[in-house]
Design a binder for these strands. Structure first.
Length: 885
RNA sequence: AGGCGCGUAGCUCAGGGGUAGAGCACUACCUUGACACGGUAGGGGUCUGGGGUUCAAAUCCCCACGCGCCUACCA
């Protein structure tokens, strides 16, 4: 006999079990069964856990715990990402507090300091995952810059280079003037801001007139090297090839014909600035135009912008250009205009399109196989709508800028000889060897963070070496990730996995819900809308946090997660209450085990309705939960278990079997009942374990059984032989009967203490048997002292009557009943039934319905209608006997 | 400009052709030997609006409105 505390106390339980699991090797793959493998999305080393992470990693822990219980050789590999720009920003901010810049330290010292920081604080987020209960194999923890990972990155670069997929090119890229690096297209965030559209007059050299061009960025005109109009534009047909004098600068530039100019826009003529705009760059290439760089990497005007502007910030330059243009009457008009603005994903500085030399990866060839595997259904997106989104992007993919002008990251493995020859090698030693004694110099840039994380699944399993893990666990089973990194990350893993492993990196891509704050905004620290999962865990426990997230995780639907106010968070409270319910139901069971030695979690066959019913319910729960897990419908998993446990097990099964289970006299029957209730509890715990690992382990340990941790217990299997439609229907009747009696009591204000008599009128033999067989339970749950069954209920004074599931029932009262109240109650019930009967009658009168609806539906409708008519008749009689008041 | 998602009880949200659901909040009763983080009963909804398909629409289709997100080379 075990006595548990009255309320579940999560903290001591969590602190107790996690170390036992972890040091006991429970998170390791076991056995030689089929593998199930997850490599988690590596959080940034600088990161700390937010609610979105909590959801992401909870989902993966649910999956890995479930598969482990199912007997798979299950492995979940954790790790962190070096997160180039993000981490460098953190360190630079730190330096700034000391009044230093990274340049004061120099590259080597700066990188060294970053490593120190990473070693000291980089593990924080992983330890937070442990607080969540994640059963990941921490001995296999990886970092995207650890020794073996560097090999993977170098191998990838070299082989892509050798395959002709990497090239160096000079083109307009996205430049962040604050981070001082190039960034890729998908690291740019687009936003519409109110601004102006300036219409500027450019004169022809021969004085024959003007062209008006429109721009939102007048300062870039200093770099114009042409004006373009559409070749089909009649306004310009005869003017192409004429020379224009660029105002302020005086440069002679041509009017060219190019499709890229749209006739509908403004005057149809567009200024062309090849060094500062992607489209203009391409137009420039087509027409062999010079590229004049007028803005530098800090966002300041260069000497080529002209003396009057050199050194000015780009926005100051804009003002001056406008003033001077206005002064010479070159501005035709200024309109209010919504300006699409591009900013750096990391620091929100407005990016500058800049002509610059960078390293690129050619994407078309890599993309094709990654498109094919998705189209062929070999890689499945969940929810499937993301497949379209992925494919659209992949089919229009552009080359990837992979060089970053940062210090923190994988340095690009390209060395240059004095004569400008590129030597690409896996290491400096290899490069020196290839150089044959020629002096060489390594490229200063590092690789985009996503270049390395794009190798994640194979790299963490040991590629480019060929260890056992790689052979055993690649390809992985599922990638669970956020929708905003489908392009940044998912696509790249598919491409690199297929290129190097000739095999998909994962079977399924599960895109989980985005967590928003209570007003539907993205959870964000800077907005102050973030919730710290550790605060939630401190308040309610890890299991409650996990459950509260899972129960809302409908497929890909956003979740609003309110912040904690006055130490309360109602959404998690619901889950905390559920945990407490589990605790107390278990407490009841454990308190009544008697001599636990002769009790085991075993289903002892029984004819009793409650037993047949709960067994069938449990079975259908197993079925539903398992198939929902299979399809990543995690909210359904949580909801199904919640209702089975609370409504089915606690509210009905425990209540119905309570007296037997808790009986002082221990007969075989009592022991059998105890085995059964332990069986249902034990099975429920196993079903709940992946969602709520701590509480289920704590309770499971106290139950009589043979295993050593619930983590290794087997996942319950459904058995069609346990379905029992009859038990289901009979139980529905029983519940309806008990509920109706309670309802009468409540509506007529009869106190709970007073024991009532219950009269039932029915000639239906199965119903009579049902009542007789369960009379003890009916008496107890409806607080009845005596049940009498009649064929037809006699008329009686002072007895509220009603009708339920074909039975007439009456509750005779000692004193007088309030006739007025009673009439109201009956009228309410009658009205309800009449309304339903009318709608059914209308349907049955409808010829089309009778002809076209499936037979079962018609039959069901007719049956229900007849039942209602009979019930209504009896209720009317009852109402009649209550008199006119 | 296109695309996607969403709009269901006061609030937060499930559901998804055949009797409208949960949690919280609300009302009444109940400290009954698992649990007040509880129990019992109840009130509350033209499922955003309009068309269509269907015997039947909250559910499927079209349109509108509102909210959110994503993509884009609209100067």
């Amino acid at each position: 006999m075990t006595e548990l505390p009255k309320a579940y106390e999560p903290h001591s339980v969590e602190e107790k079990w996690y170390p036992i699991w972890n040091s006991g090797g429970y998170f390791k793959p076991r056995g030689h069964a089929s593998k199930y493998c997850i490599t988690i999305p590596p959080p940034n080393v600088t990161g700390s856990l937010h609610i979105g992470h909590a959801l992401c990693y909870t989902i993966q822990d649910v999956l890995i715990r479930w598969k482990r219980m199912q007997g798979y050789n299950a492995l979940c590999v954790p790790g962190t990402d070096h997160a180039g720009i993000a981490t460098q920003n953190v360190l630079e901010k730190q330096l700034r507090k000391e009044g230093l810049t990274r340049h004061d330290l120099g590259r080597e010292k700066f990188v060294e300091r970053t490593w120190q920081w990473v070693e000291e604080y980089g593990g924080v987020i992983l330890s937070q995952l442990q607080r969540l209960g994640c059963s990941f194999d921490w001995d296999r923890t990886r970092f995207t810059m650890d020794e073996g990972y560097i090999d993977a990155v170098m191998e990838c670069f070299v082989r892509w280079w050798e395959g002709g997929l990497i090239y160096r090119g000079k083109r307009v890229i996205n430049w962040c003037p604050r981070c001082l690096t190039a960034i890729s297209d998908i690291e740019v965030k687009h936003e519409d801001r109110p601004g102006k559209l300036y219409h500027i007059r450019y004169p022809f050299k021969d004085g024959s007139g003007l062209v008006t061009v429109a721009t939102t960025r007048p300062e870039t005109m200093l770099g114009d090297t042409a004006v373009a109009a559409n070749p089909s534009d009649d306004r310009y047909k005869n003017l192409f090839g004429k020379t224009i004098i660029l105002p302020l600068v005086g440069r002679e530039i041509p009017l060219i014909a190019d499709d890229y100019a749209k006739s509908e826009f403004g005057s149809g003529a567009v200024k062309v600035t090849p060094a500062h705009d992607v489209n203009d760059f391409e137009a420039g290439m087509r027409h062999n135009l010079p590229k004049v760089i007028v803005i530098d990497e800090h966002g300041r005007m260069t000497a080529d912008a002209g003396e009057r502007y050199a050194g000015l910030d780009r926005y100051e330059a804009r003002e001056r250009v406008l003033e001077e243009l206005a002064a010479q009457g070159s501005i035709e008009k200024i309109e209010d205009y919504v300006v699409p603005e591009a900013s750096c994903d990391r620091c929100h500085t407005v990016i500058e399109p800049l002509l610059s030399e960078q390293w690129f990866v050619r994407m078309k060839e890599l993309a094709q196989p990654a498109i094919d595997v998705v189209k062929q259904g070999r890689v499945k997106f969940v929810p499937d709508r993301y497949e379209r989104i992925y494919l659209d992007w992949m089919e229009n993919i552009r080359d990837w800028t992979i060089s970053r002008q940062l210090w923190w990251g994988h340095r690009i493995p390209v060395w240059t000889t004095e004569d400008g020859e590129y030597i690409v090698a896996r290491s400096e030693a290899e490069a020196l060897e290839k150089a044959n004694g020629k002096p060489i110099k390594q490229d200063e840039d590092v690789l985009d963070t996503w270049f390395s994380s794009g190798l994640w699944p194979q790299a963490v399993l040991g590629w480019p070496r060929q260890p056992e893990d790689l052979a055993t666990f690649y390809p992985t089973s599922v990638l669970t990730t956020a929708r905003d990194i489908i392009y940044l990350w998912v696509s790249r893993m598919l491409m690199s996995g297929l290129y190097f492993m000739h095999e998909i990196p994962f079977d399924d891509v599960y895109i989980y819900a985005t967590v928003l704050d209570e007003q539907g905004r993205r959870q964000s620290k800077s907005l102050g809308t973030g919730v710290d999962p550790l605060d939630v865990i401190r308040l309610y426990g890890a299991d409650a946090l996990r459950f509260s997230l899972l129960v809302r995780a409908a497929r890909g639907q956003d979740i609003r997660f309110a912040k904690i106010e006055k130490d309360r968070q109602p959404q998690v409270e619901e889950a905390r209450n559920f945990a407490n319910k589990i605790w107390n139901a278990s407490r009841f069971v454990l308190m009544n085990l008697g001599d636990a030695a002769d009790i085991e979690a075993r289903w002892v066959p029984s004819d009793a309705l409650a037993d047949r019913w709960i067994l069938a319910e449990l079975n259908s729960t197993i079925e539903q939960v398992t198939s929902a897990l299979d399809e990543y419908r995690l909210n359904e998993v949580a909801q199904t278990l919640y209702h089975f446990f609370w409504d089915g097990f606690c509210d009905w099964y425990i209540e119905l079997t309570k007296t037997l289970v808790a009986s002082r006299e221990v007969t075989d029957e009592v022991r059998a009942a105890r085995c059964r209730i332990v069986y249902v509890l034990e099975t429920s715990l196993r079903l709940l374990h992946p969602l709520m690992p701590f509480i289920t382990e704590e309770i499971w340990q106290q139950l009589p059984h043979k295993g050593d941790s619930i983590m290794l217990a087997s996942w319950p299997e459904a058995d069609a032989a346990r379905d029992d439609q009859q038990a289901h229907e009979q139980m529905e009747t029983l519940i309806a009967l008990i509920t109706k009696v309670r309802n009468i009591r409540s509506e007529t204000n009869i106190p709970m203490q007073s024991r009532l008599k219950l009269y039932i009128g029915t000639t239906d033999q199965p119903t009579r048997r049902l009542v007789n067989n369960n009379s003890d339970q009916i008496k107890r749950l409806a607080r009845i002292e005596e049940i009498t069954i009649f064929d037809t209920l006699p008329a009686m004074e002072s007895a509220p009557r009603d009708i339920v599931a074909g039975m007439e029932i009456a509750v005779p009262l000692e004193g007088l009943i309030d006739f007025e109240k009673e009439r109201e109650r009956v009228i309410k019930e009658l009205t309800r039934k009449e309304t339903e009967a009318r709608s059914l009658a209308a349907r049955l009168d409808n010829i089309s319905f009778m002809e076209r609806a499936p037979r079962e539906v018609v039959q069901e409708t007719r049956g229900r209608h007849e039942e209602l008519i009979a019930e209504i008749e009896k209720l009317r009689a009852t109402l009649g006997s209550l008199g006119a008041g």
